[in-house]
Simulated scan of single mutants.
Amino acid sequence: MTQTILYARVSTADQNIAHQTAQAQAAGFTIDHVVSDHGISGVNTRLAERPEGKRLFDLLRSGDVLVVRWVDRLGRNYEDVTDTIREFMRRGVIIKTVINSLTFDGATTDAMQAAVRDALIAFMAATAQAQAEATKEAQRAGIAAAKGDETRYKGKKPTYDRKSFVQVQDMLSTGAGASAIAKETGLMRQTILRIKADPAKAEASLSRWQL
């Protein structure tokens, strides 16, 4: 009997497993099991090395469906993500994303279709890693800017907190538009655009206000 498994991963306290589960259900998925890793970096820890991530390799069988909010939940390392998806496809597992409703499987025998599929997987994995690197750089720049401004006026308190900042960054990495992000987070569209234009400045503002 086939099963549908949601894999969720959170790397910080600002992210939420329940939110990822609710998103999947709202997208029409009937989830049989939720496998989740808490406080695990998708950059430094490969999926097969995570406490729960390694369970996926034992649980998933041919015909099963693996649901992820987006490929960055599998990881933010290009090599790890592409290797993982290809390994699951070789096993006959179908991978589906909540965001953008993408489906990856190894069923096609057409070389051109397989090439397009693999190119999309590679692009998404590269985007996940690039976003992780950009976020880390923004955090470093934000902390440095905050330290340099310790004796200065803090400026206007940001209308977003750390949780919504992380969520905005996360959605931007998937290519979501400012209007869609504003609707999801409750923030003003202009706030989204300011964060997108200068994430380091947004990070610095949070640090100055200790948010």
Score class of each variant (00 low, 15 high):
I95Y: 11
A22N: 13
R189H: 01
E79N: 12
A138Y: 02
T82P: 06
P158F: 05
F165T: 03
L47F: 01
L66G: 05
M124D: 08
M1H: 14
E133P: 02
A204P: 05
R194G: 04
K154H: 12
A132N: 03
L74A: 04
T103P: 13
T45R: 10
P51L: 06
T4I: 10
Q20G: 11
M89S: 12
I94E: 11
Y7T: 14
E137T: 12
A176T: 04
I121F: 11
W209E: 07
T151Q: 01
T12Q: 05
F104G: 07
W209A: 10
K156Y: 10
F165V: 04
V35K: 00
D170Q: 12
P199C: 04
S179Q: 06
A13K: 15
I31V: 06
I181N: 01
V116T: 07
Q210P: 01
I31A: 09
T97C: 13
R73D: 08
V67H: 02
K136Q: 09
I143H: 03
Q20M: 08
S62G: 14
A48W: 03
K196H: 05
W209T: 11
A146T: 14
G42Q: 05
K154A: 12
L60W: 02
I181H: 04
V68A: 06
K201T: 10
A8C: 14
R117V: 08
R46Y: 00
D118A: 05
R73C: 04
A119N: 02
A22K: 15
A111Y: 12
S41C: 06
V35E: 08
I192W: 02
Q20I: 08
D80T: 11
R194M: 10
F165Q: 07
Q190N: 09
A8R: 09
D80M: 15
A22I: 13
S11A: 15
D14A: 15
L56K: 02
I94A: 06
V34T: 15
I17Q: 08
K136N: 01
R90V: 07
D64K: 08
I192H: 02
N100R: 15
T4N: 07
V168T: 07
A13E: 15
L6D: 04
I121V: 13
N44V: 01
G155E: 00
K147A: 14
A126T: 08
